[in-house]
Simulated scan of single mutants.
Amino acid sequence: MSTVTVDLNADLGEGFGVWTLGDDDAMLEVVTSANVACGFHAGDPAGLLRVCRAAARRGVRIGAQVAYRDLAGFGRRYVDVTAEDLTADVIYQIGALQALATAAGSSVSYVKPHGALYNTIVGDEGQAVAVAAAVHAVDPGLPVLGLTGSAFFAAADALGLRTVSEAFADRAYQPDGTLVSRREPGAVLTDADAIAARVSSMVGLGTVEAVDGSTVAIAAESVCVHGDSPGAVRSATAVRDRLGADGVTLRAFTR
């Protein structure tokens, strides 16, 4: 009988200077992949190097979490950027994190868009193509993490990039499988036990309950617990323990 495996990822390296956000070291004890900021929405070079070193010591895979150039808005505001500029911005971010990861004795092994960029390229074909083109230009072997059925995955598939479907442990879902906007109440979930139960359904049944009570089919090769959410470490630990109890093995999707 084959063993069910899933990756557990978190957004890390999102502090800036004296501002600390989340507990990166504690999360790195739980997750198998780390989506590390690249300086455009969060993160400073010294802090990012520390996170890369900490991930490398633990054998946690490092992913480049690319974003709009929006430090003030934490990358959660839409930017009407040209395709040419967006492609260059993404190439720049991957390259910066790759250098830091290399210095830490590791490497960037996948790419995941962040925040507003992640949500925009679910349906915006122009920006989706620009991001996929950037990843392909840097390394056609880099997998991309995102939502199944998105314009981003269609653009990535067209270029031959590996796509890895992601589900969100601590975010509410719309009936169409997209995420509820953070501007809406209840968009971010904080109850660790409820989050763990949702992930158990995502991984075991391939479903999640939407905000209207309907059941949504979901693909979950990797599950994200946001490192900046309240009680993130507690939630991630609860997810890990529940999946272990379900007989699921946590394993990074990259080697």
Results as ranks from 00 to 15, higher is better:
Val131Asp: 01
Thr3Trp: 04
Glu221Asp: 14
Ala158Asn: 09
Val66Ser: 02
Gln127Glu: 01
Val90Phe: 03
Ser109Leu: 12
Thr249Ile: 10
Asp176Ala: 08
Glu209Asp: 14
Val239Met: 13
Thr87Asp: 01
Ala252Cys: 11
Glu14Ile: 09
Ala220Thr: 05
Gln127His: 14
Pro113Leu: 00
Thr5Tyr: 00
Tyr92Lys: 03
Leu28His: 02
Asp7Thr: 13
Gln127Asn: 12
Leu205Trp: 06
Gly227Lys: 05
Thr102Met: 04
Arg58Glu: 00
Ala210His: 04
Val188Gly: 07
Val216Tyr: 12
Asn119Gln: 08
Ser165Met: 08
Ile62Cys: 06
Val4Pro: 03
Gly39Ile: 07
Leu161Ser: 07
Asp139His: 11
Ile121Lys: 10
Ser229Tyr: 02
Ser222Gln: 10
Arg182Gln: 04
Asp23Pro: 06
Val4Trp: 00
Leu100Ile: 11
Val208Trp: 00
Thr207Gly: 09
Ala55Arg: 12
Asp7Arg: 14
Val122Gln: 10
Arg77Phe: 08
Val144Leu: 06
Leu71Ile: 05
Val4His: 00
Ala134Leu: 11
Phe253Val: 15
Arg69Cys: 04
Gly141Ser: 15
Ser181Phe: 00
Phe153Tyr: 11
Gly47Asn: 10
Val129Asp: 15
Leu243Trp: 11
Thr190Glu: 15
Asp7Ser: 11
Asp191Leu: 09
Ala99Met: 07
Glu125Phe: 11
Ala104Thr: 12
Ala99Arg: 12
Glu14Arg: 08
Ala172Ile: 12
Glu14Val: 06
Asp23Gly: 07
Arg61Glu: 00
Arg50Glu: 14
Ala238Asn: 03
Val233Asn: 03
Tyr173Ala: 02
Ala54Trp: 05
Arg69Pro: 08
Ala172Trp: 07
Ser33Gln: 10
Ala104Asp: 02
Leu159His: 03
Ala187Arg: 00
Gly63Val: 09
Ala172Thr: 13
Ala158Gln: 14
Leu97Asp: 01
Ala245Arg: 14
Ile91Cys: 13
